[in-house]
Design a protein around this nucleic acid. Structure first.
Lengths: 240, 240
DNA sequence: TGTACATCAGTGAACGCGCGTTCACTGATGTAC
DNA sequence: TGTACATCAGTGAACGCGCGTTCACTGATGTAC
C-alpha cells in the first residue's frame, strides 16, 4: 500500500528531523562547554523537552557522544572529498589541486574547533572511538593525498628531490598506507605523503588549539607556506 | 635565630612534601580518568584525608588543575633542555645533536599521554591557560631548535637545499620566533624550523592520541625517519 | 469510511550519586617572652 | 627552660547542585480489518 509507506516515512521523517535537531543542539553545547561537560539534561532544556525524551533517540549519553564523534568524522571526510572533487574538475597545476584539500580542512577545523578536537585532540578517556570512524578517517586521508597519487600514476612527480631511500623495514612498517592509498607507488612517495599528512594535522591542531598566539602573527600566510613546502617535499610541480 | 629558621623550614618541608603527594595522586587520576573528571573528593579519598583539607594546599579545583598544567609544561621543558644539554656535551654530528631532543620529547609524551594532552590536546573549555606556561613553552621550543641555531651561527647549515625564498610579509609574520630564538638568522631558516616543530608535535600527537593504530606498524622506525627528514629540510648535516 | 488496536513520542516525578565548597571545630606544631 | 599565645593542618558535617537513568503514564499517530 503506497499510503502506508508514505505515512510511515512521514513519521520517520519527523524522527529524523528531531534527531538532527538534537545533534545540532548537542554540537552547540560541545562548542560552548567541551565534550566532557556534555549533558543530556541541558540539551533537553534547550529543546524544551523532558530529559527522558532523549532516550527515544539516543541510548543514553555515551551513545549521543558516539554519534557526535562519528558525525564529526563524516563531516570532515565529506569536506575533504568535496574539495578534492572540485580540484579534479578544475584544470590546474598539480600543486593547486593538492592545495585545495588542506585549505578546506583547515577552514573546517577553524569553524568547528571542538569537533576537530573530537577527532585529533585528547581522546575522551575510558571511551573507545566507534569502529565506524575508520572509514571516514581513511576517506579524509585519501582525499588529502589524491593529487599526489594521481601525479604519481601519471609519472608527473619530480624525482629531482633529494629524498633519502626508504629501508625495507620502514616500507614494511607502512604497508597499510601503501596498500590502501598508494598501490604500486615507491615507498619514498608513501613516506613523504604520510609526513605531509602529519605536518598538516599538526599545523591545524597547533593553530586551532591556540598555540600560535603571539607566535605566528599571520596564520593564513604561514599555512600557505606550509602547503607549498609540503607539495615540494612530496615532489609535486607548481606548473600546469 | 637558627632554631627558628630550621624549624620553620621543617614545617615548610612537610608542606612541600604534602603538596607533592597531592600532585602525584592528581596526576594518577589524570592518567586514569582525564582532566575533565578530575575530582578533589576522589583525590582526598586516595590520600586518606577529608576533601576540605585540600583547600590548605590548593585554592579549589581550578587552582589544582592550573598547577597540573603548569607542572606538565615545566616537566616537558626540563626534559627537552636536559636532552639538549646532553647533546651539547657530546661531540657528535649536528644531526645527532638535533635528533636527541625530539626523541626525548616523544618518550616523555608516550610515558604521560594525558600530560601531553594538557599541553597540546583540546584545551579545557572555559579555562584560560596560566600565563606562566609561556616560559616553559619557549624553553621547550628553544631546546628543540638549539642545534639548528648553533649550526646556523657556525655557518654549518647546508644551503644546497632548495628552500623557496620567504616573502617579506611572511618574515614579518614570524618575527616573534625570529627574535626570540633565531637572532640574525635568515627567515628561510626560521620558517623551516617552525615547520619542523609543527611536524614533530604533529607526529607525537598522532601517535600518542592513537591515530597510528593499524596504520604505522613500527612507530619507532617511522619517527626516526621523520627526524631525519626534518634535519634535512632544515639544512643540518649528518656528518660529524 | 469507521472502528479497535498497536505503536510510538513525550511527560513528569522520582531514584541515588558524586561533586565543590563552606564552616565551626580540634589538636598539634611553632613562636615570643 | 617554661609558659601563654598564635599559627596552621586537618576533621566532619552540612549545603545545594546538576547529573544520568528508570518508570508508569498520557495522548497522538499510524495500522488492520
Amino acid at each position: 500500500m503506497p499510503a502506508t509507506s508514505t505515512s510511515r516515512t512521514a513519521r520517520e521523517r519527523v524522527r529524523e528531523e528531531m534527531t538532527g535537531e538534537i545533534l545540532t543542539v548537542a554540537r552547540d553545547h560541545l562548542a560552548r562547554d567541551g565534550a566532557a561537560a556534555l549533558s543530556l539534561r541541558s540539551i533537553a532544556r534547550d529543546l524544551g523537552m523532558a530529559p527522558s525524551a532523549l532516550y527515544r533517540y539516543f541510548d543514553g549519553r555515551n551513545a549521543l557522544l558516539s554519534a557526535l564523534i562519528l558525525a564529526a568524522y563524516e563531516s570532515l571526510a565529506q569536506c575533504a572529498e568535496e574539495a578534492a572533487d572540485q580540484a579534479a574538475r578544475h584544470e590546474e597545476s598539480d600543486f593547486e589541486r593538492f592545495a585545495r584539500v588542506p585549505r578546506a580542512i583547515r577552514r573546517w577545523a577553524l569553524a568547528r574547533p571542538y569537533e576537530w578536537g573530537l577527532i585529533f585532540g585528547t581522546p575522551v578517556p575510558g571511551y573507545e572511538a566507534p569502529e565506524d570512524t575508520v572509514g571516514p578517517y581513511a576517506r579524509t586521508a585519501g582525499a588529502t593525498v589524491r593529487a599526489v597519487v594521481e601525479a604519481e600514476q601519471a609519472g608527473r612527480l619530480s624525482s629531482v628531490r633529494d629524498t633519502a631511500a626508504v629501508s625495507a623495514e620502514l616500507a614494511e612498517a607502512v604497508t597499510p598506507v601503501s596498500e590502501a592509498l598508494f598501490p604500486g607507488a615507491p615507498p619514498e612517495t608513501v613516506v613523504s605523503a604520510i609526513e605531509a599528512w602529519t605536518t598538516m594535522i599538526g599545523a591545524v591542531s597547533l593553530e586551532v588549539f591556540g598555540h600560535w598566539r603571539n607566535t605566528i602573527l599571520d596564520p593564513d600566510l604561514y599555512f600557505e607556506r606550509t602547503i607549498a613546502d609540503l607539495a615540494d617535499s612530496v615532489g609535486l610541480s607548481r606548473l600546469a
